[in-house]
Amino acid sequence: VPQRAWTVEQLRSEQLPKKDIIKFLQEHGSDSFLAEHKLLGNIKNVAKTANKDHLVTAYNHLFETKRFK
């Protein structure tokens, strides 16, 4: 089981690129989880459509539901 890579403050910070969060989610989330949160596909394309709040919610949801690969 992966550990949380970032704190809530870090997740919301401008310093953390959306692409980093997407990469983490794609590496650790199950396909059904990723599909549900519309996070499947090319990281660049996902970054265009997903806002930061959406990614933070998905990140927290992944750990709450433990839907890891």
Rank of each mutant, 00 (worst) to 15 (best):
D53F: 06
A35S: 10
A50P: 04
F24N: 01
N51G: 10
K23R: 11
Q26R: 11
K18L: 09
K66P: 03
T65L: 08
G41I: 02
F24R: 01
H54Y: 06
A35P: 01
K23Y: 06
D31H: 13
Y59K: 01
R4Y: 08
W6V: 06
A47M: 09
F68Y: 06
A47Q: 13
N60Y: 07
K69M: 05
P17L: 11
K52A: 04
R67L: 07
D53R: 06
A47N: 07
K18S: 14
L40Y: 11
N42K: 13
E27S: 08
F33T: 00
A47G: 07
T57D: 13
E36Y: 12
A47D: 09
Q15V: 07
K19L: 11
I21C: 01
Q3E: 14
E14I: 09
E27A: 08
E36F: 10
N51K: 09
I21N: 00
R12G: 06
F68W: 06
K18Y: 04
S13I: 03
H54D: 15
K66L: 09
L25N: 00
N51H: 09
K44D: 15
G41T: 04
L55H: 00
I43E: 07
R4E: 09
P17F: 08
L34N: 04
L11D: 02
R12W: 15
K23L: 10
A35R: 09
V8F: 06
K44I: 14
V56M: 05
V56N: 03
E14N: 15
E14H: 11
A50L: 13
L39E: 00
G41M: 04
N60E: 15
L25V: 03
T65G: 11
K66A: 09
S30E: 10
E14T: 13
N42V: 12
E36G: 08
S13C: 04
F24Q: 02
Y59Q: 01
H54F: 08
S13M: 03
N42I: 11
K66C: 12
N42H: 12
H54K: 12
A35M: 12
V56Y: 05
H37E: 04
T57M: 13
H61C: 15
L62S: 00
Y59E: 01
L11S: 02
Y59M: 02
R4F: 09
L16V: 15
E27I: 07
H28E: 05
L62R: 00
L55Q: 00
H54A: 10
H37F: 15
K48Q: 14
D31V: 13
A5Y: 14
E9G: 03
Q26E: 02
L55E: 00
N45F: 15
D53I: 05
D20C: 13
L62D: 00
T57S: 11
Q15W: 10
L25K: 00
R67I: 04
E64D: 13
A58Q: 03
I21H: 01
L40I: 12
H54P: 02
I43V: 11
R12F: 15
F63V: 02
Q26G: 02
L25Q: 00
T49P: 02
D53N: 09
V46F: 05
D20I: 14
V46M: 07
K44E: 15
V1A: 10
H54N: 12
E27C: 09
A47T: 13
H28L: 05
H61I: 10
Q10K: 03
E36L: 10
R12H: 13
V1E: 13
A35K: 12
L11V: 03
N42Y: 13
G41N: 04
A58R: 01
V46K: 05
F24V: 04
V1F: 13
F63T: 01
E64R: 08
L11Y: 02
N45Y: 15
Q26D: 01
D31T: 13
K48L: 15
K38V: 06
G29I: 01
N42D: 14
D31E: 14
H28N: 13
E64I: 08
H28P: 00
F68C: 03
K48E: 15
I22E: 01
I21L: 05
A35E: 11
L34D: 00
V8M: 10
L40E: 08
K38A: 12
E14A: 14
H61P: 00
D53W: 07
A58G: 02
V1C: 15
E64N: 08
V46E: 03
L34T: 01
S30L: 06
A5D: 15
K38R: 12
E14S: 14
L55I: 07
A50S: 11
L39M: 07
K19A: 15
K69H: 06
A5T: 11
A5S: 11
F24T: 02
L16T: 11
N45M: 13
L55D: 01
T7Q: 05
E27H: 09
E64W: 10
Q15H: 09
V56H: 02
A47L: 12
H28S: 11
Y59P: 00
N51M: 08
P17C: 10
V1I: 12
G29Q: 01
S32Y: 09
Q15F: 10
F68L: 02
